[in-house]
Design a protein around this nucleic acid. Structure first.
Length: 427
RNA sequence: GUGGGCGUAGCGUAGCGGUUAACGCGCCAGGUUGUGGCCCUGGAGACCGAGGGUUCAAAUCCCUCCGUCCACCCCA
């Protein structure tokens, strides 16, 4: 059926699985989220930092926990041409901590407050609100152990959501202890689970060996009874951890920030200590976590720095935008051209590009019509672009150094000197 | 990693065994000589996701693969 002379067409590519193009019609949402993020972070005194999207693999592999899903199966690791083992960053905290150490930020006034906006990569199976490349706003406050900073971070995230028009969310909060008290709890938890192992799911048997704390957030029906009667971490917390948590809830209460204590919230990254939290929209659905974070008092040391406390969060733009669309928040419209220049002859085209430059210099958006198209086609285009005015340059106008300036709203038109167009638009 | 739905022009769909695959939107060009939004006309654009099979005949039936979406899991 194919004629023998039909040329073989080159292969068409699609964006890699789990990635998407952000098209112009979606950009207003992205701009809205980015602008709001930058504004709110600055309000809280956070300064911007951007780190590379890839790092030495060890930065992530060493910090996130070998048994965590992120490290065990989701990190993009590759060897570069110089045989260095690198990894696309799967989360934002470890690399910022690396930068904190590398640039000697420990000698700055503490805590150092940082924020960043950029892509993260996880080899995951794509789904609604879940991508292999996703964009996060993250903040880190490094160098202060007090619960005031924990509260500040949570307040910042809550403020960000409110500013976005996302008022409907629940904050889940928990403390998972520290290096002092958690080991004793883990022992107790394992002792409790050991006889129950035949009854729980396969994943839980793995968790028992590798990451016992995660036994608590298993979603399997058959494991729920085991979880319900498990020892409570609360009862094993050391005094400093208890006090820290009490101070945190005190701050949150003072700020009138509502929260729900969820003793089963343990989080997926191993470096967390004490405070952990997640923000969920009220709308039900999968991938409902919009943002989350916690304290990581051992992380700086783990990456070779001095013992330094830290706390932060990450929040995913794609999920925020899903919720913004769902809750119908208003975003600013895409700017529309002030002037569309239609030109009818080759000489007029030269005048058109010069006029465009002059009007742009006055700070106004200009679109120049496609060369060689009929006036009708160019006017149609001007209308499709929602231009406020159209300037028509034909042989007649050009001969006397003028344009026909048409108001596309009220259909009025008048002749204006080429030099006066920018001024005429300002009226 | 597990399970399910779906893959027809740029987008949204129809066609569900039988000649040159249809419609809407969009795109391009016309509808009197230099003018938009409505309307009308015409055009471009699809090897019907890919490969294999069944059949005289397949976009239509079967198989495999790929892609995509959704759920579980995990997480932002």
């Amino acid at each position: 059926m194919t004629s023998p002379d039909k040329p073989q067409r080159p292969r068409k590519f699609a964006a890699p699985r789990g990635t998407t193009d952000i098209l112009p019609e979606d950009w207003p949402y992205w701009k809205y989220v980015r602008d709001t993020a930058e504004r709110v972070c600055e309000l809280f005194g956070y300064r911007r930092i951007e780190t590379p999207i890839f790092e030495h693999a060890g930065v992530f592999l060493r910090t996130s926990g070998e048994s965590s899903d992120i490290v065990s199966k989701e990190v993009y690791v590759f060897e570069d041409r110089g045989k260095d083992l690198l990894a696309l960053r799967p989360e934002g905290t470890a690399n910022v901590v690396r930068a904190y150490i590398e640039h000697g930020m420990a000698s700055l006034p503490q805590p150092v407050r940082l924020f960043y906006i950029g892509p993260n990569f996880r080899y995951d199976r794509p789904q609604a609100g879940r991508y292999r490349q996703h964009t996060q706003l993250g903040i880190e406050a490094i160098g202060d152990a007090d619960a005031l900073v924990d509260a500040e971070v949570i307040d910042l995230l809550a403020t960000f959501y409110r500013e976005l028009g996302l008022s409907e969310f629940t904050i889940k909060l928990n403390t998972i202890g520290d290096q002092v008290c958690r080991p004793a709890y883990i022992d107790a938890l394992r002792a409790y689970y050991r006889p129950l192992l035949p009854a729980v799911c396969d994943d839980c048997r793995t968790r028992f060996e590798k990451n016992s704390l995660r036994l608590l957030d298993c979603k399997e029906q058959r494991c729920q009874a085991s979880i319900a009667d498990a020892p409570r971490l609360r009862e094993y917390l050391c005094e400093p951890c208890k006090e820290h948590f009490a101070r945190l809830t005190g701050y949150l209460d003072a700020l009138d920030i509502p929260y729900v204590i969820d003793e089963r919230l343990v989080r997926g990254l191993d470096y967390y200590t004490r405070t952990v939290f997640e923000f969920h929209p009220h709308e039900e659905g999968s991938q409902s976590s919009m943002g989350s974070g916690g304290r990581y008092d051992g992380l700086v040391e783990l990456l070779g720095g001095p013992p330094t406390p830290g706390v932060g969060f990450g929040t995913g733009f794609e999920r925020l935008i899903i919720n913004i669309k769902r809750q119908g928040a208003a975003v600013s419209p895409t700017p529309v051209p002030a002037l569309y220049i239609a030109h009818l002859t080759p000489e007029a085209s030269l005048a058109a590009v010069r006029l465009a430059r002059a009007v742009r210099a006055a700070g106004r958006q200009v679109i120049v019509g496609a060369a060689g198209r009929s006036l009708k086609a160019q006017m149609r285009h001007a209308d499709a672009k929602d231009a406020a005015y159209a300037a028509i340059i034909g042989a007649e106008e050009l001969a006397v150094g003028e344009v026909m300036l048409r108001n596309l709203g009220d259909h009025s038109e008048r002749r204006v000197r080429l030099d006066d167009v920018a001024r005429a638009l300002a009226d």
